[in-house]
Simulated scan of single mutants.
Amino acid sequence: MTLVEFPAIALAAVVCWAAGSLLQIPAKNSRIFGSLSWLFMLSGTLVLAWFLTSYWIALERPPLRTLGETRLWYAMLIPVVGFLVEYRYKIGWLKYYCMGLATVFLGINYLHPDVFEKALMPALQSPWFVPHVVVYLVGYVLLAASAVSGWHNVIQNFRGRRSEKGESMSHYLALLGFVLLTFGLIFGALWAKEAWGHYWTWDPKETWAFISWLAYLGYLHLVARKTDPRKLQWYLGLSFFVLLVCWFGVNYLPSAQNSVHTYSG
């Protein structure tokens, strides 16, 4: 399966998520509709998982080289976070935000289609490449969910409907995301040493990865200082913008034109 089939796959996933979301309305009074709703929502994610697996086989390499390929993984993984949160915390609203974000990224890929290319430059043939990218992807997914949860909590606080369970959820998502960001930095340094001979060169991508790590380290320091959790929801919501700059915004900076990470554009 190649990118030719992507529009149909993306449409199928979005239709499944939308149908599952709409079925949540009658599901409040019917277990049958509840089961159908989950069947559709899970099917949307499974369709993307099937496409990524097939695409991996067709490429004969992990589909993790370009921004478009990482967006596919992001679109597949972030709804899973919403589903798991509902299972763990019994909080149902996050999954709708997650499916919405996944739809946005599928839309970006549709409007800016990737190029089918099997070639993998020598630097990306390192055994550290896949662990580095996968760990970062999952970390970004968790931190995106944490940011969405943070903004939701901010709105709820304005409406006088504070949810300590929601604040706890956003905290633990951020904590897990930070752990993965840390491993991502370590794996990236090991990869850089093998590929370019240096653990760290203050390349624009590396610099922004470090800045984003510091942003979430700052969050943990504020937590340790027992800062009001309501204020921390603002912090989590705004910190994710730093990650977005690191993920793809840095590619548009003049200093990134000579970056060793230009392969990911």
Rank of each mutant, 00 (worst) to 15 (best):
W151A: 02
R225W: 15
N109K: 04
M76E: 14
H198F: 15
E167Y: 05
A144Y: 09
T66G: 04
A10D: 00
Q156F: 13
T70L: 11
W56V: 09
L84F: 14
C16H: 02
A18I: 14
Q24G: 03
A145F: 07
Y89L: 12
F51K: 06
N109E: 10
Y110P: 00
H171D: 07
Q156R: 12
A195L: 03
Y110R: 01
L77F: 13
K226D: 11
P127G: 06
T70V: 12
K90A: 07
V141S: 01
G34Q: 02
A13R: 02
L11V: 15
L101K: 05
L243P: 00
E69G: 05
F158G: 04
A18Q: 01
L143S: 06
W151K: 01
I78E: 05
W50R: 08
K118Q: 09
W247M: 01
V223R: 03
V47S: 06
W200Q: 12
L244H: 00
Y219P: 08
V245H: 02
W50E: 13
L111K: 00
V15T: 03
W234A: 00
S255A: 12
L36N: 07
E194L: 01
L11W: 14
P113M: 05
L238I: 15
V115P: 00
P79Q: 08
W191Y: 02
A195Y: 05
K205T: 03
A49Q: 05
F158S: 05
I57D: 11
P127V: 13
T66S: 10
T103P: 06
V47Y: 10
F51H: 11
F240Y: 12
H198N: 15
L217S: 10
T227Q: 03
P26V: 12
T227Y: 10
L175T: 09
V135K: 00
E164H: 04
S264M: 15
F105M: 12
W196P: 04
S43A: 11
I78H: 03
L173G: 00
F158D: 08
L11N: 09
V179I: 11
V14N: 04
Y55K: 14
W93I: 15
V135D: 06
G218H: 07
P131M: 11
L46R: 01
P229G: 07
W151H: 04
V134M: 13
K226S: 08
L143V: 09
Y199A: 11
V14M: 12
A174T: 07
R161G: 04
L3W: 06
R71W: 15
G184D: 03
G100I: 14
A102C: 12
S170G: 00
V133G: 06
R71Y: 15
H221Y: 10
V260C: 01
V47C: 09
T227S: 05
D114K: 04
K165E: 14
V81G: 02
L222T: 03
T2P: 00
K165T: 14
G218P: 04
